[in-house]
Structure formats: structure tokens, C-alpha cells
Nucleic acid binder design. Structure first.
Lengths: 144, 144
DNA sequence: ATATAACTTCAAGTGCACTTTAAGTCAAGG
DNA sequence: CCTTGACTTAAAGTGCACTTGAAGTTATAT
């Protein structure tokens, strides 16, 4: 006999479990992203499934999806398997946008790294005839 | 004799050159990030150096630096070489924060990719006995 | 000469994603 | 029993990074 312990999280306990605050959870609920159960007295409760769902939402959010993107996704999800093509297309668009940003951000990091190295060499007195950052970049073929 | 063409950009031309709008440039100036020259009549003008400077600022911004971080950097820069240690420390902190975010975001992408693949397999009817996403993730050792 | 496009300042408005406040209800521990 | 903490709603406030508007001046093209 498996222990049938259905965990019923209060909003506060759930907030800790997913790393959000209770107000944020209420806000997400207002936005239609979560639909917790309610006790007879009106208090929300959440279950294990909801933990997974919110964590998944946070992954999507972390790839750049806005609340309204997420809401659209949730709406389609609630409509059933017929909307899988739409959901797939949405996620593919998100991925494509993400990859553009990802490349840009890697370039930004390269420049930041170059600048840090430039300062470190300057500090260490490695630069004999102090070279300006622009020509330092060019030496590595790093542009702009 | 080299053609001594000092380019004097108006704010509009400069905006195009750096990919910002004129109001944004005025905003950055208010924040102390740029200090354009002025014609006798009060109109701003920018030069080639300013293009490089703004592009560099945008790289730093793109690594997650806020306007106020940038302002601090600019203030130290204006104070001369004595502040190189502070600037270096700031950029190292920025890099460190960036790398944390970068790892997180890569994990988010992995989950997004997995979800897309899961939908694609479901769509294509590759999933014989439809597998839920949670166990699909586990098959790849991708957690949460 | 005159229209219109680009510039000037300063203040107010926008969008996003929360966060905080106010006023009240409810549950659990001593 | 009663205090304390957690919960409820609805509305207002916050922070960031711009963006827009208003009112006026100046430069350029016809």
C-alpha cells in the first residue's frame, strides 16, 4: 500500500516550494497562468502537479516569454490537443527569438571580457606602450 | 594630405549611426552617459569617437548593466586612471552576474527545446503510447 | 518667403512585472 | 479565549528604461 499523501500546499508553502512570493502567485493567477484549488472557506491550495507546472512556466518565462505569451500558451493548452500546432509554433517562435538574443549576448560578453583583460593588462603593466581598447579589440578580430 | 573630414553628426544622424532614437540619446545624456558637443546655437553634435563610445556602452548594457551601473562606470572613467581598480571590479562583478544568468538561461533553453521536441514527436505520431513531458525529460536526464 | 522638418527643454505618460497597502476574515497555539 | 500569523480582495504604488507631448526655435528646401 503506497502512502497516499496528497500534499496540499497553502499559498505561502507553495510560494516557498516554487521560489515565488504569495502576491506573485496571486498575480499569475489573475493573469490566468495558474488555477489553484479552493477550500470551502475560499482559501487556495496547491498540489504537486502545480509545482511542476509553475516550474515549467518559469522555464518558459526564462527564455523570454512575456506574461501575455504565457497566457496565450495556457489558453491553448486548456483547449486541448487540437491546439498543439499553435503551441508548437509559439514555442518555436520563442526559441528563434531566444537564439537571436543569445548570439547577441555572447557578443556582448566577448567585449566585456576583452575590456576586463585590457584593464588587467594595463593594471599589471603588461602593456608597454599603452594600447587603446579599439586597437586591442582589432588584434583579436573582435569588432565594434 | 589626408582628407580631414571630421564628421559632425546631428542628434538624428547620430541616432541612426548607433541604432537608438534621439529621445533615448537625450535620456542617456540626462543620465550622464554621453556628453555631446554643442554648436553655438545650442544644438548637439556628435563625432566618430562618440559612436564607438555609445556602441561600447550598449555592449556593457547588453551584459546586464543597468543605467546606474553605467553611470557609475562613466563617473569613474571621467576621474582618470586612478579608478581603474574600481572599474575593473565593477566589470568583474557584472561578468560574474552575467555568467550565473547565462547558465540559468541555457537550462531554460534546454527545457524549451525538450518541450518542442516532445510536441514534434507527439504531432508526428512517433510517441506510440503517449508519454508525458515529465517522464520524457527524465529519459534525457533533464531535471525540473 | 515660406513651409516643413529637425532641433530645443521640461514634464508627463507608457509598459511590464510585480509589490505594497488597506481592510477585513480565519485558523492554530498557548 | 485570545492573540498572532496567514490568508482574502481590490486598488494603488514601484522601478526601470524609455517614449510622448507641448510649446517653442532654427535650418533647409522650394
Amino acid at each position: 500500500m503506497p502512502t497516499n499523501t496528497k500534499t496540499n500546499y497553502s499559498i505561502g508553502a507553495f510560494a516557498k516550494a516554487v521560489g515565488l512570493t504569495a502576491p506573485t502567485l496571486r498575480y499569475y493567477e489573475d493573469q490566468g497562468l495558474i488555477e489553484p484549488h479552493r477550500h470551502a472557506n475560499g482559501r487556495r491550495y496547491y498540489q504537486e502537479d502545480d509545482v511542476n507546472w509553475v516550474k515549467f512556466l518559469l522555464h518558459l518565462k526564462g527564455t523570454g516569454m512575456s506574461i501575455s505569451d504565457l497566457k496565450q500558451y495556457v489558453t491553448w493548452r486548456a483547449a486541448g490537443d487540437a491546439t498543439i500546432p499553435q503551441r508548437l509554433a509559439l514555442l518555436q517562435r520563442v526559441k528563434s527569438d531566444f537564439l537571436v538574443q543569445f548570439n547577441e549576448v555572447q557578443h556582448h560578453l566577448q567585449i566585456l571580457n576583452d575590456k576586463i583583460n585590457w584593464y588587467e593588462e594595463k593594471e599589471a603593466g603588461i602593456m608597454t606602450a599603452p594600447e587603446d581598447f579599439a586597437s586591442y579589440l582589432k588584434r583579436f578580430g573582435h569588432h565594434e
